[in-house]
Design a protein around this nucleic acid. Sequence first.
DNA 1: CGAATAGTCAAGCCTTCACTTAACTAAATG
DNA 2: CATTTAGTTAAGTGAAGGCTTGACTATTCG
Lengths: 108, 108
Amino acid sequence: MRKKKPDIDRIFHALGDPSRRAILEKLSDGPVSVSRLAEPLAITLAAVVQHLQVLEESGLVRTEKLGRVRTCRIETAGLAAAEEWIRDRRSVWERGLDRLGDLLEEEE
Amino acid sequence: MRKKKPDIDRIFHALGDPSRRAILEKLSDGPVSVSRLAEPLAITLAAVVQHLQVLEESGLVRTEKLGRVRTCRIETAGLAAAEEWIRDRRSVWERGLDRLGDLLEEEE
DNA sequence: CGAATAGTCAAGCCTTCACTTAACTAAATG
DNA sequence: CATTTAGTTAAGTGAAGGCTTGACTATTCG
């Protein structure tokens, strides 16, 4: 059993919120400061900071503070983990489809 | 502007819950009845039914009732949409990395 | 220096959410 | 027919979640 999971639980929880996904979308264009991130978002700076905390704890975002500006960037490893989880579910299922309605169980 | 989303919102919300992901994991081995789905899950049948509703409304699962048994199966299109969203974020980011070869250090 | 800028922290407020219990319907089985 | 099996629905509860306000800390600028 592999124990070294990049916290799939926190990752998917973080991805579950639309504001957080919006942040990631913005961030995928490149590193952005917190207030710049907040600008288009119809919510308070404070709220953005809270989302950022969740994103950082889940490993989806990395931030770094220089002077009074905190710069945020996407951490691809987190996204990759989520993508992998999904791909796994899909591929197992599609392998199952090869049976084409057969009631035989798997092997392996 | 673009309205043609396969309900990314509901999909990621659905994926955000661990019980729901457990259901999907089980389902990726092949179609299963509701009560069989509930068996390993430390929650009530009623709770499972509710999760199933969320999963079905999000398009991640399709169900079909024959007699008194409802059979559930994974709908790969939903998973594919989520996977695509993630891949998009990643690829845009990685493209950006090519342009700006700025300083970034991996920490472990 | 004083003022503006960029964040941070802590309560508190609602709303949403997962889950339970309990009462109920419909189909298979003895 | 009576019972068990499989699922459905409704109502309620407690906890978590997203967001706001407001007070506070650093840093940069005129």
